[in-house]
Design a protein around this nucleic acid. Structure first.
Lengths: 107, 107
DNA sequence: TCCTTGTGCAATTGAATGGTTGCACCTCAA
DNA sequence: TTGAGGTGCAACCATTCAATTGCACAAGGA
């Protein structure tokens, strides 16, 4: 039930969210170093805080991230469960067409 | 080397290609029923042939499909090897944060 | 109480995207 | 040789998207 039925729309926003390098970076950063606020996340990046906020909102829409208010700040936490949906679709589509996928299946 | 080096750009176009429902559909169709021309692929769809051509070009840019001229037609063949790149990145990013991914890893 | 810091909201801009139509060109079969 | 079917190219349009800026507002700390 959980890794199975990513309805079309969900896959749209999911893959869409992953198609941007900044967003992939944000996701990796959140996964590696834990929750953080948009302001902090924007610091090392060459874009404004607002830009980061928008990216995070897109990611939230895709279910990749969850905002959590704490006092006057908002920490975003990575919720990578949805990544499994993407993997699921890919394995499903790729099926047994590619040896490389079979290899990944079993690794 | 093969499932490894999805340089940023490659992932952009790859996930980007997968973020559109029509393109996912085309890919599945090509995988399921083998190579076909843009004209044929467009028939059951609610969009024009040219729209399909553009989608196929985007997919070609992502390495998901390869055009092959045969006489006066062009058959597009699915080349799902790149899907492994996507899966690779997802597993890498997801790491061991999600039980569901671990499950998929071993299935 | 002030003042600073972090968020949220809105308007704007420029570029990318998805789609269409029209037409020229090439290939092949009568 | 003529005509029909399949492609390719280009212009165009509407929508979405990434990003910026400016400003108002909430929450803590001095």
């Amino acid at each position: 039930m959980s890794t199975q039925p990513p309805a079309g729309d969900a896959l749209d926003s999911l893959f869409g969210a992953l198609s941007d390098p900044t967003r992939r970076l944000l996701l990796q950063r959140l996964l590696a170093k834990g929750p953080a606020t948009a302001t902090v996340l924007a610091e090392p990046l060459p874009v404004s805080r607002q830009a980061v906020v928008k990216h995070l909102q897109a990611m939230e829409g895709a279910g990749l991230v969850t905002p959590q208010r704490e006092g006057r700040e908002v920490r975003y936490r990575a919720t990578p469960e949805r990544l499994a949906s993407a993997v699921g679709w890919l394995l499903d589509a790729g099926g047994s067409w590619d040896r490389r996928i079979d290899r990944l299946r079993k690794r």
